[in-house]
Each structure stands twice: as structure tokens, then as C-alpha cells.
């Protein structure tokens, strides 16, 4: 539902990610973080939730 609401507001769904990772699954954690970072970086043309203090 959170993803749906984000998308409804015009925020890309790929910015939100849920995973179930055990504390023993270090490699899975690294892989997931890498994957999310890549996805979000790909979206990063539009800084909707970034503040601009120069204004």
C-alpha cells in the first residue's frame, strides 16, 4: 500500500524496497543494497525530496 500511495503521488515505486534478510545473510544484504542503489541512482534525475538551501 505504501508503494501504491507513493506511486499515486507521482513518486517512483523503485525508491521503496522491502527485503527479508537474516543477520547471517551478509552477501544477500550487500547484493540487495547494491541493487537498490543502482535503481535509485538511475532515477536520480528528479530530486523531488531533496532540499535546496541556495534559495
Amino acid at each position: 500500500m505504501m508503494g501504491n500511495l507513493l506511486e499515486h503521488m507521482g513518486v517512483e515505486r523503485d525508491r521503496l524496497h522491502f527485503s527479508w534478510i537474516s543477520s547471517a545473510e551478509a552477501t544477500k544484504f550487500v547484493d540487495v543494497v547494491k541493487e537498490i542503489s543502482d535503481k535509485v541512482r538511475a532515477l536520480d534525475t528528479d530530486k523531488k525530496f531533496a532540499k535546496d538551501y541556495t534559495k
Binding site: 506511486e7 499515486h8 503521488m9 507521482g10 513518486v11 517512483e12 523531488k48
Partner: peptide, 9 residues
């Protein structure tokens, strides 16, 4: 479209 939804809110 997503941009219009964002603009709406």
C-alpha cells in the same frame, strides 16, 4: 501521468 500526479499533490 506520474509528473501530473506529482504536480497535483
Amino acid at each position: 501521468d506520474p509528473a501530473a500526479r506529482w504536480a497535483h499533490f
